[in-house]
Amino acid sequence: MTRQVDVLVVGAGPAGLTAAARLAASGAGRVEVLDREQRAGGVPRHCAHGGFGSWRDPLTGPAYARRLVETALSAGAVVRTGVTALDWAGPLALNTVGPAGPETVEARAIILATGARERPRAARLVPGTRPAGVYTTGELQQAVHLFGQRIGTRAVIVGAEPVSYRAADTVRASGAEVVALVTEAERAQVSLVRAQDARLRRRVPLLTGTAVAELLGHGRLSGVRVRRRDGRTAELACDTVVFTGDFVPENELARRGGLSVDAGTTSRPGVFAAGGLTHPGESAATAARSGARAAAAVMRPSGAARDAAAVRRP
């Protein structure tokens, strides 16, 4: 079955929802956002802390996610969750699947806003055993904040970026102890205040110039071996390790289409890209702004949906 819309947005995170809200509000016709998760909102859904929204209207991640969804809906966009865009059915058409079965959706313009994720342990080629207790921040946040799952008792955090400190917060919120933050960089990649707060008030050691060389333990993680730049190694006992940051684009659809993705556009006319997909690792606010820019690009004369409101389909 093939259905037609004016603009199809893949991904209901900050970028996709912001783009959809703008487009729907500017009369782009039927604007539909698909998300494969059961709930819209993207990554902020599980960032159970502040720092989202604006300085005048500060929000937690989940509240920000809800706000984005409400804004898109009230502008007239359609948000469909539990629906995965699988592959291309044509230059401006995607095959999707959900509980209602397969469907092909054709559009005058498509925005890819599929986000970014953290590079997991295997892709970092960290040697060792394959025990339980190995996380990324994304999985950790969902485990603790969405599902209330128990993690271990002692966690090593790999990385010292903002997301790494968020991971440390989540570890503590779950009742576990942070053994150390470990980074190959020379210093923490966050504000001095944040780094000193962690080090002094929370007594979390920060090991700079240090790499995780091996994971240890059968069944459950028993420790990580770390290596300093001078070659010295040490073993940190822990039952949990969180690989944070090192963001990679979630670009399966773009690659399946053979599309190269640039800031805002792609190599195919009528297909646009926004958010973490184009700039992995940036903030939610940056992703939202890039969604707004993609919406503007769609509405420009060269964009496909400009006169969509006038040209109604049968």
């Binding site: 994720r117 953290e118 996380y135 990324t136 999985e139 969902q142 485990a143």
Partner: peptide
């Protein structure tokens, strides 16, 4: 993704 997206839901 090695569980970044689905790990907690599968668990």
């Amino acid at each position: 993704c090695q569980g970044f997206y689905c790990g907690a839901a599968v668990r």
